[in-house]
Design a protein around this nucleic acid. Structure first.
Lengths: 151, 151
DNA sequence: CTGAAGTTTCAGAGATCCGTGAACATTCGG
DNA sequence: CCGAATGTTCACGGATCTCTGAAACTTCAG
């Protein structure tokens, strides 16, 4: 693993962490994305990043729950191996749908309290309509991408 | 403004802040979204939320730069009035395109360093392809929504 | 069954982030 | 112009979040 590749990985992690992802989670994701090995063990990652095994455990758990990485059934001797999942990015984007649904619901709640024919009600209706639209359209969009991959 | 509406606003702000938005920014956004007035002044918002004017200034600046709210040219007497912008949500979603572009670029960088015919290169190609696809599709998606609004 | 390697959990230290409050700047009515 | 009302900036302190380190737990080879 060249220094240049390591540097690119860290740069990427830094960017991600500016967009809401925890720093350690971003670094671990980057490590698994940029490594030339097919998989890495928790120990390898924590050594490469120079962080404790405790931090590893947390970050790996998060990434698994996000559907970005997966445990690999240990080929032979050692312990847990991890790898970046095929289709991880599409999975990540799909999970945004939950957020869209949340926004739609929040708007509905607000409309109920505010009343439809009020300033707040009208504002909330625009919000509900927009997120409702996105919620209907996104799954198809992602689906179409997946179909171009696996025809 | 009923207590019930205020409560719904705070609940909404809390949700937003769990998804990356700063707490204060989320609360101010919620106040302007849920108010029954057409506009609010900075003073009105900070009083309603019980926070300092300093915090207001920062939050309002952020929301303006995000394209979520706008200054209203002061109808008559007082100072700055603010209101939630028409089409704010679509604007917000459009700004995500910058993130998509960033991800695409990061992948390109990585591929250049890693080489195409390597494990890292192939992983990064999937990433580049996915974000490239989203980047091409999103503007049209949002455009179509805007066209249904203003035919 | 035993012990070593690996992993998870968690309390607390350290770092980071955010809002306050006050000083400074700006704007507009008079 | 002047000055009162409003807006902005920023250093500081408190709140929050994150990582470490160590102890407990798990798993597996022998």
């Amino acid at each position: 693993m060249t220094d240049q590749l390591l540097a690119a990985a860290e740069r990427f992690a830094l960017t991600l962490s500016q967009y809401g992802l925890q720093r350690m989670t971003a670094r671990v994701m980057a490590a698994l994305l940029f490594t030339q090995q097919p998989t890495m063990t928790a120990g390898e990652i924590s050594e490469q990043l120079g962080v404790s095994s405790g931090a590893m455990s947390g970050a790996l758990k998060t990434l698994i729950s996000l559907g970005m990485i997966e445990k690999v059934p240990a080929p032979g001797s050692r312990r847990e191996h991890f790898r970046f999942r095929d289709g991880a990015w599409a999975t990540l984007m799909s999970q945004q749908n939950a957020v869209l649904a949340l926004m739609t619901d929040a708007a509905d709640d607000g409309i109920e309290v505010a009343g439809e024919q009020t300033p707040a009600g009208r504002r909330l209706e625009e919000m509900r309509d927009f997120y409702g639209y996105m919620l209907r359209e996104m799954p198809g969009l992602i689906d179409r991408w997946q179909r171009t991959r696996n025809p």
